[in-house]
């Protein structure tokens, strides 16, 4: 469709009207405060209550000063593992469930879909407490149930052990959010026109091979969106850790991720005072990690994906 461009066109006010409310609210409440925070990371508290410009000194402290760097790198690697678990467990399960749900003439599909999505609508407060209770050795629900199917010996207080706490939390988060990739991919699968699938059937491509050869390539853009949403969500995560393990991200910081590190740095905990400037520094680093991931997606992956117009 060609729209000839004229150079002396009057201002098209409807474009301004359509964009203005969103842009104004977004700029005032999100962008300006964000840059305020980034700016804060370049300062430190000087004599009295003044702000003193220190350039990138806060970042040098965070990366190299042993008081900060061990906590920072610990949180970064933990966060990466948290993300990897989601990519390896949550998204494949989400795709598989969506694929099964979208098979034609499946009965009760609406029921399954609604039921599986329910954990995603519960707050971290609820999910965190529910799993804290269930995995609690004090209550004994999890060991009892595992006994019933003969694997009782495998139980251990996973949330209390350094080696397993982080993975357990990641799996709780997967349990909670698997419905989101499922819904997005399910919607994408439904939007594939019947003609395409019928043509595939005429060529003898059905069942699993139809999924791999026809449907999967068509939903790749959606899988891309799901992946980047997972990345961003995981690198902002905080609430679940806070509700289940507290601000100290125990045991012994083994579940500390960047969000909980930011919280402790920013607002302080126990005997340590809150430091807005170091907090802003952590926030800035998080910002750049996320920026890097999103840029990689936007410029490296999304532009290379083929889109199909039906």
């Amino acid at each position: 469709m060609l729209r000839p461009r004229t150079t002396r066109r009057p201002i098209r006010w409807h474009i301004v009207v359509f964009l203005a409310p969103a842009v104004l609210i977004y700029t005032a409440i999100m962008i300006i405060p964000l840059f305020g925070t980034l700016n804060l990371s370049l300062f430190t508290r000087g004599e009295g209550n003044t702000r003193e410009f220190v350039g990138l000194a806060n970042f040098v402290t965070l990366f190299t000063d042993p008081r900060w760097s061990s906590a920072f790198w610990n949180a970064t690697w933990n966060n990466l593992w948290f993300f990897i678990v989601h990519m390896l467990v949550q998204n494949p399960i989400g795709i598989a469930l969506a694929a099964i749900l979208s098979s034609p003439r499946l009965r009760f599909a609406a029921f399954y879909r609604s039921a599986i999505f329910i954990p995603a609508i519960l707050s971290f407060v609820i999910v965190g407490f529910v799993w804290r209770l269930i995995l609690s050795p004090l209550w004994g629900v999890a060991p009892n149930m595992m006994d019933a199917i003969g694997i009782g010996d495998w139980f251990s207080p996973w949330l209390g052990q350094e080696s397993s706490a982080l993975t357990t939390l990641a799996l709780i988060s997967v349990w909670q959010f698997v419905g989101i990739p499922m819904m997005l991919i399910y919607a994408a699968l439904l939007s594939i026109p019947d003609e395409v699938l019928e043509a595939a059937e005429m060529d003898g491509i059905t069942g699993a091979s139809q999924f791999w050869k026809i449907k999967l390539p068509l939903i790749l853009p959606t899988i891309g969106i799901v992946s980047i949403l997972t990345f961003v969500g995981n690198f902002n995560a905080f609430d679940l850790i806070y509700v289940v393990q507290g601000a100290l991200a125990g045991p012994n910081y083994s579940t500390d991720i960047l969000g909980s590190l930011l919280f402790r740095t920013f607002f302080g905990f126990q005997l340590q005072l809150g430091d807005p400037h170091m907090g802003a520094t952590v926030a800035t680093v998080m910002f750049f990690i996320i920026l890097a991931g999103v840029s990689l997606y936007l410029f490296g992956i999304q532009t290379r994906m083929r889109r199909y117009q039906f």
Partner: peptide, 14 residues
């Protein structure tokens, strides 16, 4: 840009 920015990062200014 706002998809990736946790609005929480700007809490103090907000």
């Amino acid at each position: 840009l706002g998809i990736m920015i946790p609005i929480r990062l700007g809490t103090v200014a907000i």
